[in-house]
Write a protein that binds this DNA or RNA. Structure first.
Lengths: 248, 248
DNA sequence: GCAAAAGTGTTCCGACTACACCCATGC
DNA sequence: GCATGGGTGTAGTCGGAACACTTTTGC
């Protein structure tokens, strides 16, 4: 520990050289519109400075007594009504100068962002508009320039989404209780691109793994042979939890 | 969300209900003693309250103008002199009540920890003792009870270490410039346990991947046939960067 | 009947496993 | 020679890729 740092029994004596932080939470919220084959990101229009009038990821500052995760769920719940979702911490961006409010002439408060990553069911997600188009789903490729370092956060979130989809059952957090293998396949295609597997191989591999229960029910959607409805069996998945790359 | 939520146009009018944070960095620092087949963790004895006299992960508070990563490198450099290492951000622990200094009667300052994970070369790592046995390598299985939530952070770090080793070339950040395949194998065995692969298969797989250059040199260590020395070829590894599970 | 979607089967090939075996060195 | 560690080879097996084919529906 260098010479100018000395801690005291209780508070550091010279707190003067320590940074003071406000801690924010910014969420990369994805949903998958399987019908139109689009991967969507939720962005909000900033109403206040800095970056008023620019799009950004939905975020908030952490309150007294509030968990980081709780703050993340709060932001999400402010923007979209949704029943089923997956959420986890992504990465913490904390360098100085990432927020213009950190002007040197101010109190030298730093703004740190603990970003989170979420996946919600598109059909189930009702945006909470404040009567001005200040919140929107954007297809990933068409997301506009974002405020702060949010573009970087977004690309980090997209990487995580792809990885998670490959080795975790997060897809089932966002599919209905029962679903067809076509639904599941569409979701994977939409996120990972259509180069990742042929439908029949995808199907065979997943069924062999044994955590998809055939409910016996069928569903018919327009033309084509009716599809079997499956249910995700969490207990049967348990032993595969630690195995990498189950799905791909 | 809940009824007590109200945002205001510019700054949150009532900054009073926002938490103020000190941000710390705690490092899970691993090294591998391949000779004695031990995976080691660096712990330090706390000199000050809270938890004075308890072991903890090495950490520090982030200073004004300092990057999180810079703070992480600083802690490390204060504890151990080392040339080659790998370091990355791990996870952020930020719930209230994780630090006893957050007493309600105080200013309601929260202590948040952005944990980092590091791997250093054991033979090359010189501990910076302050003339009291206040810093030590512990074999993972024998690490004593740690202060704060550091035991949780450690187990998180160990998971990351195993994963990284399986799909990233971090082993080469911690091996000498040239090394034998036996060295490499020992490192993997020590971290992952000896159930993961047979030596000859490990060898064949790695050589087929094509990013290990045979230097043509040999080394002889006591009995046994002299081993070829290899060098990691970062350029040749490049195309494999995005492929999962290269090493196992 | 025809298109569309679901579901089955088959062939080929590469990769991983589990070994057995050969090679070069110290003592 | 023999122990020790390095290095090579091979037979068996499993799983994924590619693709042809069958089934069941709507129209």
């Amino acid at each position: 520990m260098s010479a100018n740092l000395h801690r005291t029994p209780n508070y550091p004596l010279s707190t003067v050289d320590l940074a003071d932080f406000k801690v924010g939470v910014d969420n990369v919220i994805f949903s998958v519109d399987t019908h139109r084959n689009r991967l969507l990101v939720l962005v909000v229009m900033r109403q206040t400075d800095p970056f008023a009038g620019h799009w950004s990821l939905p975020g908030t500052l952490v309150r007294q007594g509030e968990t980081l995760e709780a703050a993340a769920y709060r932001v999400l719940a402010e923007k979209v009504r949704v029943n089923t979702l997956y959420l986890e911490q992504l990465y913490t961006f904390g360098g100085p100068d990432r927020d213009p409010r950190e002007s040197p002439q101010a109190f030298d408060v730093r703004y740190l962002s603990v970003s989170h990553f979420a996946l919600v069911r598109f059909e189930d997600a009702e945006l909470i508009g404040d009567s001005s188009g200040s919140i929107a789903w954007y297809p990933l490729a068409e997301v506009p320039q974002l405020a702060f370092d949010h573009t970087e956060i977004l690309s980090y979130g997209y990487h995580r989404l792809r990885n998670k989809l490959e080795y975790s059952p997060i897809a089932f957090d966002v599919l209905p209780e029962v679903f067809t293998l076509g639904d599941l396949y569409q979701l994977y295609i939409t996120v990972l691109g259509d180069g990742f597997s042929d439908y029949s191989n995808f199907r065979a591999r997943l069924l062999k793994l044994g955590f998809l229960q055939d409910t016996g029910q069928k569903t018919s959607r327009g033309a084509g042979r009716p599809a079997s409805l499956y249910r995700f069996d969490a207990a049967a998945f348990e032993p595969l939890k630690e195995k990498p790359m189950v799905f791909i």
